[in-house]
């Protein structure tokens, strides 16, 4: 039943570009893009509680791969190469850092974005001697929308599978108490590395798919740290430990950002800052969790009366 519903929703969403105008379609692309990133982020960071700020490092790598290879390779191959690059970087980074915990991991991932950005810049400046790159692919907004929709469906499917499988359980144990997990015989590093890699590959693909929308790509455009922060706040708002939590955070927040920037262009940053504080204070476990606890409290009250 659930699967049928999901399939119907997917098909219905696939028909959006045929009747939506360019602006709603642009919104759709934004919502899907952030939906994918937030879901992928929560897949690893939700259960382990490792706050990663490296989202945009992988996102940017994907976009750059498309910019570099789009003229020489067919598009599907480019996407595949992007995924492989994302995987390789995730493995290297994961092996080096997943033994870190808490704030050290946060700082490291933030630094990673800057490191990747500087490496790309260094390479472009000293080896290819171009910095801006052009992506001229015959892909309209509707194509980007469809690809993102497919990627979102795949991401949700993957997240669903992880939740059901042993690896998901193992990850939750690690998140609750790594010492207990290791005593239970869970191979901590391997488990974390697997999930981290899957999550990073999805982020890389999200960047690769959206690259043709910008035409012009340079490090400051695709490695924008704000993206990483937005993804975290979206996942936290919706609730990173639920399947649809990150998505439910991404959709309203994205629309809210859009509404704010359309109506309060001069106060956007101030309102955004207040909003972030509000989310952390008022909804520390996300909207879904807050809704559930509200529900249980209400029904308990009813039971008492």
């Amino acid at each position: 039943m659930k699967f049928v519903l999901a399939l119907v929703a997917l098909v219905a969403l696939a028909f959006v570009p045929s009747f939506a105008g360019p602006y709603p379609l642009g919104l759709g692309i934004g919502v899907l893009g952030y939906g994918v990133l937030a879901t992928a982020w929560a897949m690893f960071s939700g259960p382990t509680r490792y706050i990663s700020l490296a989202t945009v490092a992988f996102f940017g790598l994907g976009a750059y791969t498309v910019a570099v290879l789009s003229e020489t390779l067919p598009y599907p191959v480019v996407l595949f190469v992007a995924a492989v690059i994302g995987l390789v970087v995730a493995l290297i980074v994961g092996l080096a850092t997943l033994r870190l915990a808490g704030i050290y991991f946060v700082i490291f991932t933030f630094g990673l974005t800057e490191l990747v950005r500087q490496l790309v810049t260094y390479y472009e400046v000293n080896v290819t001697r171009t910095l801006g790159r052009y992506v001229f692919l015959p892909l309209g907004p509707e194509h980007i929308y469809w690809q993102l929709l497919a990627l979102l469906a795949a991401t949700l499917g993957m997240a669903y599978w992880v939740r059901q499988s042993r690896i998901g359980l193992a990850l939750r144990v690690i998140g609750d108490d790594p010492v207990v997990a290791s005593h239970l015989g869970i191979r901590i590093t391997r488990t974390k590395l697997t999930l981290f890699s899957i999550s990073c590959v999805i982020m890389t693909l999200a960047g690769a798919i959206q690259a043709p929308r910008w035409t012009y790509i340079e490090p400051s455009i695709v490695f924008n740290p704000t993206t990483s922060f937005l993804v975290v706040i979206m996942a936290l708002l919706g609730g990173p430990n639920r399947l649809f939590g990150p998505l439910l955070g991404a959709v309203p927040l994205f629309l809210l950002f859009e509404w704010l920037s359309a109506n309060f262009p001069n106060h956007y940053s101030i309102i955004l800052g207040l909003l972030f504080i509000a989310i952390v204070f008022v909804l520390p476990n996300g909207v879904l969790a807050a809704g559930e606890s509200l529900w249980t409290r209400l029904s308990r009250r009813e039971a008492r009366t």
Binding site: Y216, N224, T226, S261, P265, S269
Partner: peptide, 12 residues
């Protein structure tokens, strides 16, 4: 509008 110096926001 303010495009906040991002390409994504400029396009939208």
């Amino acid at each position: 509008y303010d495009d906040r110096s991002t390409a994504e926001e400029t396009v939208r």
